[in-house]
Computed example of a mutant assay.
Amino acid sequence: MRRAKKEGRYMGIAPFGYANKSKEDGSKYIALVEPDASVMRWIFEELAKGIFNTEQIYHMACRRGFKRTKNNMWGLIRNPVYCGKIFIPKYKDEESRFVTGQHEPLISEGLFYNVQDILDGKSRLYRPKIKTVVDFPLRGFFICPKCQKKLQGSKCKGRHKYYHYYHCEAQCKFRINSEIANELFIEDLNKYQPIAEVKKLYSSILYETHRDLANNAGEQKRRLVEQIKDYELRLSNARDLLLTSKIEADDYKLMKDDYGARIANLERELSTVTKDKHSIEELLVKGVDNLIKLSDSYLKRDLSDARSLIGLVYPENFTIHENKVQTARVNKIVESIYLINKQLKAKKNGTKDDFYLLSREVTGTGQITTSFLDDLKKLAFYM
C-alpha cells in the first residue's frame, strides 16, 4: 500500500466527489463523479471567499446535495487529495511528504492552500456568523464610517409602519435607513456594469490584459523554479557534508528543516501562478454578460446568493460616507470594467490606437494581477 501511494495511487474508499473505479487490467483508481464533484468544488470556492463560516456553508451545501455530516466535511476540506496530492506518512528513516496523484484533481493547489490558510487563521478571517433578514442584506459587510465597527440591523415602529436601520452599537451612534443604504449600494454596484452596446470591447481589452499577465506569470514561474533548485542544491550539499562528517547530524537536521520549509513555501507559491494557456474567450463572454446584468442578479437572487455576490464584488468591508459607498478594495475584474467605462466616456470616437492605449492603461494600473483568471471564472459561472 505504501508503494502504491508513492506511485500516486489513492488507496481506500474514494472521498466525496470521487468514485472507486477499476481499469481493464484490474488496477484501482478514483475518478470524479457528478454532481458530487461540483458540490465539493463549490464548498472550496465558498470557503476561499471568506463570506460565510463553515457551518453556514455546510447547510448551504446540504441544500445543493452534500451528503455527509458536518464533521465529515471538516475532514474533507483538509484532504489534499482534492488538489491532486497523496500524503505519504513518515516511516522509519523516510520523512513524510506529498506526491502527485494519478487521479484528476478537483481544484487547484492554490485554491486548496488558500482555504487551509483561512481555516488556520493565516489569511482573511471568516466573517462572523450572522443571522440576517431580507431587510438587511448588507449586514456583516457594512461598517461604521466613524469607528469601523460592523453595523447591526434593527427596526423601530413609526406611526404607521416599521422603519429599518443599520446602526452602530458604539458610542458614535451612527445609523442610516436601510432602504437608503440599499439604494446607494445598488447605485454603486451599477458603476461596475459594462456598457452593453460595446460588450466586445471589454472582452478584447481583458483578453489583452490576460495575455500580458500570462507572459508575466511565465517569468514568475521561471524565477520560482530557479529558487527551488537553488535550495535543493543547498540541501544536497548539506547532505554531502554530513556523509563526510564535516557537519554534525543536529546541524544537518536544522538545515534540512529550514530548506525543506523554504522549498515547500516556494512550491506553494508556484502552484498559484496561472498555468492556463488555453483560450479564455468563452469565459470572457460569459463574465462580461453576467456583469451587464449585475444589479438585476443581486436584486432577483435569494438572500444567501445575493450575499455571496456582494462578497465576490466587494472582497473587503465597505461603508457609506456622504451618500457614497467607500471600500478598500473591489474585485479586480469589476474594477477594471469601471476604469474602462471612465475611459470610454472620455473617448466618444475611438480608434485602434485608442484601444491599444486603453488596454495598456488597464494592464498598467496593477488592478489586475495573476488572480485574474480565478476572478473571471467566478464571474463567468456565478450567475
Rank of each mutant, 00 (worst) to 15 (best):
D374M: 11
I86H: 01
T209H: 10
K378H: 12
F44N: 02
R68C: 10
L235Q: 09
P80Y: 12
Y259M: 07
F185E: 04
I280L: 03
I30N: 03
E45L: 08
F381Q: 05
S336F: 04
S297I: 01
L233K: 15
R78I: 03
V288T: 14
L32T: 05
F318R: 01
L266G: 03
K5V: 13
M255G: 05
Q193L: 01
N341H: 09
E34G: 01
I13P: 03
K352E: 14
Q343I: 10
F44S: 02
D36Q: 14
L358Q: 00
I333C: 06
T54P: 02
G8T: 00
M40W: 02
Y58K: 02
R64S: 04
Y113G: 09
A238P: 10
L138Q: 03
L241M: 12
K277C: 02
V325A: 08
K150Y: 10
I280E: 00
Y314Q: 00
T319H: 11
L235H: 13
Q116A: 13
L138V: 07
Y298C: 03
Y58H: 09
N331P: 04
K332R: 07
S371T: 08
K70M: 07
Q152I: 04
K229S: 11
N177Y: 14
K275I: 13
I176S: 03
I180V: 08
V285N: 09
K5S: 04
R307H: 02
S295Y: 10
L241T: 08
P128S: 13
E55G: 05
H321M: 11
V325P: 09
E183K: 10
C168T: 00
E361H: 07
K5T: 09
I205A: 01
K345S: 11
V285D: 11
K300S: 15
K352Y: 14
I130C: 13
A306K: 15
C83N: 02
Y338C: 10
H59K: 15
A346F: 07
Q227D: 10
H164N: 15
R64A: 05
S203N: 09
S336Q: 12
R175D: 07
L189K: 03
G50C: 12
N182H: 06
A31E: 11
K378P: 05
N114K: 12
R2G: 13
S371D: 12
G50H: 02
A217L: 01
G350I: 14
K377P: 03
Y192A: 01
K324A: 15
N177A: 05
N341A: 14
H167A: 02
W74T: 14
E316R: 11
L373M: 06
K49I: 11
S336H: 05
E109R: 04
R329H: 11
G84R: 00
F112M: 04
T370M: 13
Y18M: 07
F142T: 01
V225W: 06
S108P: 03
K286I: 02
D212A: 04
Y314T: 01
K293A: 09
E248Y: 11
G8M: 09
N265H: 14
K348V: 12
D305C: 05
S123Y: 06
M73R: 06
I88V: 06
L76C: 12
V273H: 13
N190A: 15
G158W: 04
